[in-house]
Structures are given as structure tokens and as C-alpha cells.
Design a binder for these strands. Structure first.
Length: 323
DNA sequence: GCGACAG
DNA sequence: ATCTTGTCGC
């Protein structure tokens, strides 16, 4: 099966390819063309890692302050662009703005999909007393395909844990990443790898690294996975994406979307939010029950470890540990 | 420099 | 998330 970069990677490269010789654009302009300025950092990474190998004029894409990518200076000079101190001098005059770039507003389309699917989220407990919790996480690595082209690879891992916090089952699934990490679109990035691993196992509720409804359109990764696989799911995150903390409640747009559960009296809280077929109360209850003395609950912690790509020379059969 | 947006 | 040296604390 040949590795093909997903549509978001393709649109980023297409946008860069539409910048003519002697002109420039920015990571942010490309991100806005895709439909969301939040993708600016992802654009920078994709252009710098994939641009040269895919034959697009990567050197014509710079930061909003005119900072150029490493190695771009000689190519820009050759096109008559003046570079001084690692920055282009006349960005304004040469700038190709978002409206002139050739790319589809794919992130805007994905946002619409999130809004539609968010209406399907159910915030009631399907399972009253979960016995088996599936911790799920994904690790990433840039690799090269058979033709030497860089592709980002996802390694999804799921660990099923019982009420004694014992591992009873697990799965690892490797697949090409479908899109780079863009804040608020994490569900799209991780869903394929998670779905492959989750669909091979049986459990009562899935717990993943990320947020559930604590999201700008109430459709974080845990909601995405929960709705699309029609399984109970909840999110556990180390950092906040949206909302304000009031006591232990996480409030966004006048309603509670999750919890900021204290771990130690003075330590940082862990953010918990329902994804699908789990209630607010249920999500906190499950995390407390399956938390083994550490900040990150055991199922997610183990999944995180299992997802890691083995270092060269370590592990057998491509596995980090045996399950 | 500030603000900050999961992974 | 990944890249990475040393450092702090249970």
C-alpha cells in the first residue's frame, strides 16, 4: 500500500506551489486560505519537512515577520529577493495574499463537519459501572516512503484495563497520518489510527489523551471518536483548550464542559470532559476510579507508553513491550 | 515582549 | 506531538 499524504498536506503544498517566482507568502496566509489561521504552525512544519522533496517552492514561504526557512537564502537571492539577517526585506511588496493562493478551504469544511457531528453527542451514561476502560493514544514520526518522500506516520495504541488496573488486552495500529496537528482539529488527525486499534478490542468506555466537549464547537477528539465509532468516550488532557476554571468545574460559553480535577493540593489539575455517551458526573467518576496515584489515569498513561515508536535497537517485532 | 491554542 | 541536557524530587 503506497503512502499518500492526506488532503490537508496536499492543500498546503498546492498553496505553496501557487506562489510565483520572485514573490512570497507566509505560513499564516496559507493557513487562512485553508480556512483557519490556527494552522500557521502546521503549515510551517509541512512546508519545511515536505516542501523540497515534493518539488514546491518552499523557500518562498516565510513567517509573518519575514523570517526565512533554513537554506532558503540562496534560492531567494537567485530570484532577486533581498535577505538581510535571515529575513526578507520587502515582504509587503512581494506578498501573495490568502485570496490569491490556490488551495481549498479544507479546514473550514472540517469545522462544518464538527458542528454537524457535535449535534449527535449524547451526554448521558450508557454504562453505569464501567469495568473495562480502553486507554487510547497516538504517537507520530516522520518517515520516508519507498520513493524517499517524507510522510508522517501515526502509531495508535489502545490498552484495556480492568477495575484492578490490570492490563487485559491491547492493540497497536500503524497508518499514515491524515493531517498535521492543528489546534481544535485533533480528532481528525488521530481518528484513523485510534479507530483501527479500538475496533479490534472490547471494552465499556474509551479514555483518550485530549478533550471531549471542552472544545470551541464542543467536538474534541473524544467526542469525535465516540460519535464516529458510536462508543462511550471521554477525554483526559494535561492542558486546557477552552473555558475558565471555577472551583473544579470547567466552564465555557456559560455551561460546564468538564472538570479541572486536582491531583495534588498545589499541583496542576487534570482536565476531564465527556466525549460521547458519558455524563459530566460519569466522566469524573471514571477518571477517579481508574487513576492509579498519578496525574494521568492508568489506561491513558499505559496507552501513551505503548504508542511510542521503539527506539532503534530496542523492542522485538516492532513492539515496545509485550501484551 | 505579550498572549497562548489539546496533541 | 517531537526534538533533547541536565536537573529536581519522591
Amino acid at each position: 500500500m503506497p503512502l499518500r499524504p492526506g488532503p490537508v498536506y496536499v492543500e498546503i503544498l498546492r498553496a505553496a506551489d501557487s506562489v510565483p517566482r520572485g514573490r512570497l507568502t507566509t505560513f499564516g496566509e496559507i493557513a487562512r486560505t485553508l480556512g483557519d489561521y490556527r494552522a500557521a504552525k502546521a503549515v510551517a512544519e509541512v512546508i519545511s519537512v515536505m516542501g523540497r522533496a515534493y518539488g514546491v517552492p518552499w523557500h518562498r514561504v516565510v513567517s509573518s515577520r519575514g523570517e526565512i526557512l533554513r537554506g532558503a537564502e540562496e534560492f531567494l537571492r537567485e530570484e532577486g529577493v533581498v535577505v538581510k539577517g535571515g529575513r526578507v526585506v520587502d515582504l509587503t511588496r512581494r506578498l501573495v495574499e490568502a485570496g490569491e493562493l490556490e488551495a481549498r478551504p479544507i479546514l473550514a469544511e472540517m469545522r462544518r463537519t464538527q458542528r454537524i457531528l457535535a449535534e449527535r453527542v449524547i451526554l448521558e451514561d450508557e454504562v453505569e459501572r464501567p469495568e473495562l476502560v480502553a486507554g487510547a493514544d497516538v504517537a507520530y514520526r516522520w518517515e520516508r516512503d519507498e520513493g524517499g518522500l517524507p510522510v508522517e506516520v501515526a502509531r495508535g495504541a489502545v490498552v484495556v484495563v480492568d477495575t484492578d488496573l490490570r492490563v487485559v488486552d491491547g492493540s497497536i495500529q500503524i497508518s499514515p497520518a491524515v493531517m498535521p496537528y492543528v489546534p481544535t482539529y485533533l480528532g481528525f488527525r488521530e481518528f484513523p489510527a485510534l479507530a483501527r486499534a479500538l475496533s479490534r478490542l472490547s471494552f465499556d468506555v474509551a479514555m483518550m489523551d485530549g478533550h471531549g466537549i471542552a472544545h470551541p464547537v464542543f467536538f474534541g477528539e473524544a467526542s469525535h471518536v465516540g460519535v464516529c465509532l458510536d462508543i462511550p468516550a471521554l477525554g483526559v488532557a494535561k492542558r486546557r483548550l477552552v473555558g475558565k476554571i471555577r472551583g473544579e468545574e470547567l466552564i465555557y460559553m456559560t455551561r460546564q464542559v468538564g472538570w479541572a480535577l486536582p491531583v495534588k493540593p498545589e499541583g496542576r489539575p487534570v482536565y476531564v470532559s465527556p466525549g460521547h455517551k458519558v455524563s459530566l458526573e460519569g466522566s469524573a467518576k471514571i477518571v477517579k476510579k481508574f487513576r492509579g496515584g498519578t496525574r494521568i489515569p492508568t489506561p491513558v498513561r499505559l496507552a501513551h507508553k505503548l504508542a511510542e515508536f521503539p527506539k532503534p535497537g530496542e523492542g522485538r517485532f516492532g513492539e515496545t513491550s509485550s501484551l
